[in-house]
């Protein structure tokens, strides 16, 4: 049930971080976008990117602006969502041994596990699912996925660590495809099946 890029609106969670960096990629693919800063704006979108930034800031304001609950519900109903770096921390079931804020992706993740900014790095990745080899991936104070559940598919690895994972319509990258010029990860995200089109996703209805 893949809908084409042109008739859906991609939300950019706009609480903090590099959400504008996704706009050129989405526009190159002909996708509409809007920022999401509260629950009413979340209702206007068909899928959502949780950008890179500081996960503590985004977590605080997801709660404070009463966005965490409706977002969890939308994801449960099947809205595709992509967490980038900090976004993958917000999606994770377990963060540094504690329950994550959205718990939408069955991964165990450790924050800043590769070190501080002086330890940030670029690595070349193979991503067979996107027919990519030697893709230059930037890891910035990146989190590390230390365990992925049975239904989570690892689509790329850095050494032993999964760095691009997907479970149904929830995907996460611990690196930053938005900082490059290739919109191929955005294209992949736009093709994730939306099991709950917006018009059928009113609260109370099954997803």
């Amino acid at each position: 049930m893949t809908s084409s890029a042109s008739n859906q609106t991609v939300g950019l969670l706009g609480l903090q971080g590099a959400f504008q960096d996704h706009i050129p990629h989405l526009e190159a693919l002909g996708a509409r976008w809007r920022t999401v800063r509260d629950a009413a704006e979340l209702e206007q979108v068909d899928r959502l990117i949780i950008p890179g930034g500081e996960s503590t800031v985004m977590a605080r304001y997801l709660k404070r602006f009463s966005l965490a609950e409706p977002l969890r519900a939308r994801i449960e109903q099947g809205m595709p969502v992509w967490g980038v770096c900090a976004g993958s921390i917000l999606l994770a079931k377990t963060v540094d041994g504690r329950p994550g804020i959205l718990g939408a992706l069955s991964i165990r993740i450790l924050r800043n596990a590769y070190g501080r900014q002086v330890d940030s790095f670029q690595a070349v990745l193979d991503v067979p699912a996107l027919s990519l080899s030697a893709f230059p991936a930037v890891f910035i104070r990146a989190p590390k996925i230390v365990e992925a559940g049975d239904r989570v598919e690892a689509l790329s690895w850095f050494g032993k660590d999964p760095v691009f994972v997907r479970s149904r319509s929830v995907m996460a990258t611990t690196f930053h495809p938005e900082l490059g010029s290739d919109p191929i990860f955005h294209q992949y995200f736009l093709a994730l099946p939306n099991r709950a089109p917006r018009e059928f996703s009113a609260p109370g209805l099954p997803g």
């Binding site: 903090q16 971080g17 930034g53 670029q122």
Partner: peptide, 14 residues
């Protein structure tokens, strides 16, 4: 340069 400018991007809107 890419890694460091990219890090600054992550601080935006903060």
């Amino acid at each position: 340069r890419k890694i460091n400018r990219g890090f600054a991007e992550m601080l935006k809107n903060g």
